[in-house]
């Protein structure tokens, strides 16, 4: 297992290096003048030379290779540059925004697992019953509902009509734990709903498939209770595709996080990265895309390790 993890980590490093170069090339190929665009929306533009001065300030007047070399040399020493759109140090921005996003991901995953797995199990056990139909309908709604619409509706319902929760905003946990939990309830729920629906569908079909296996029939024939059959024999193998879904959902959450962070005014990485792309804010783009890549690579690695735990045959084959 140790060797396996080592090899995967090495792969991850190679991919990371490739992504770094690719992101830089793509950023250069993207049409648009971020400095001019941002300044035009912010200040008096009668003086065209103001744009040139700002370009110089950020080193954007240098040849592309020089820019890349400078960026890389500084990046590895922890100096991730300065945001063109926000004027802050990218490293500081990144670190400050990491915590809200992680909290959002974690909360969404809890919602996703907390709703998706029980719904899937109940759906499988009560197959074709009214409960199953209701759950299937619920999960379909969860999968298909647009996140921004769901968010706005929930805000109006639970913050304006019935003012139970704050409409938006973020308060760090260590500053005010109760307010933090209250302010994160809606965003995590919205982000978690989509993957919860997906998860429930996967759990249901996976569990149904496992429940049809010979060894389950054997277990039942041996006289195990239905609870024991499901918990001890069916659930663990049924979780293999589910782990994949959880891993994929986590990796793709950043896309959903953008909407959620914008709508709920959470100062996280999702909002920061998409703003950076629109503004052609290269230092921020580079840092966040590397973080996204790392996130995907690490989650994939974790999923692979979990496969081995859930299915010893996979471990042995390796």
């Amino acid at each position: 297992m140790g060797r396996f993890i080592g090899v995967r980590l090495l792969h991850a490093l190679v991919i990371l290096a490739l992504v770094t170069v690719l992101v830089f090339i793509i950023a250069q190929l993207m049409p648009g003048d971020g400095v001019l665009a941002a300044m035009a929306g912010s200040i008096d533009m009668s003086d065209a030379s103001a744009v040139e001065r700002v370009r110089k300030q950020y080193g954007l007047d240098q040849p592309i290779l020089v820019q890349f070399g400078d960026w890389l040399a500084r990046f590895v020493t922890g100096d991730w540059g300065t945001s063109i759109g926000g004027g802050e140090k990218v490293y500081d921005m990144f670190m400050r925004r990491l915590s809200p996003t992680l909290e959002l991901f974690l909360g969404a995953t809890i919602w996703s697992i907390g709703i998706g797995i029980p719904a899937g199990i109940i759906g499988a056990l009560k197959r074709n019953s009214a409960v199953d139909v209701a759950l299937t309908t619920g999960t379909m709604i969860g999968v298909s509902i647009p996140a921004f619409w769901e968010a706005i509706m929930l805000i109006y319902l639970l913050a304006v009509i019935f003012p139970i929760l704050p409409p938006s905003g973020y308060v760090p946990f260590f500053e005010d734990p109760w307010l933090n939990i209250k302010s994160m309830l809606l965003p995590t729920f919205v982000l978690g709903t989509h993957s919860a629906g997906l998860l429930a569908r996967y759990v249901r079909s996976s569990l149904l498939e496992v429940l049809g296996q010979d060894y389950i029939r054997t277990a039942r024939a041996k006289g195990f209770s239905e609870r024991a059959v499901i918990v001890l024999h069916a659930l663990k193998p049924a979780m293999i595709p589910v782990v994949t879904v959880i891993g994929l959902a986590w990796a793709h959450m950043l896309g959903g996080a953008f909407f959620v962070e914008v709508i709920f005014a959470i100062p996280g990485l999702g909002r920061m990265s998409v703003d950076a792309i629109f503004q052609k804010d290269f230092p921020v783009m580079q840092a966040t895309l590397i973080a996204v890549t790392l996130n995907v690579l690490l989650v994939n690695l974790l999923v692979d390790i979990l496969y081995g735990y859930l299915d010893p045959r996979i471990r042995v084959r390796r």
Binding site: I155, V160, P163, P166, P167, I263
Partner: peptide, 14 residues
């Protein structure tokens, strides 16, 4: 950032 949420905050008295 979102205008609809800004309005929700106003209507919620936030």
């Amino acid at each position: 950032p979102d205008p609809a949420v800004r309005l929700a905050n106003l209507r919620a008295g936030k």
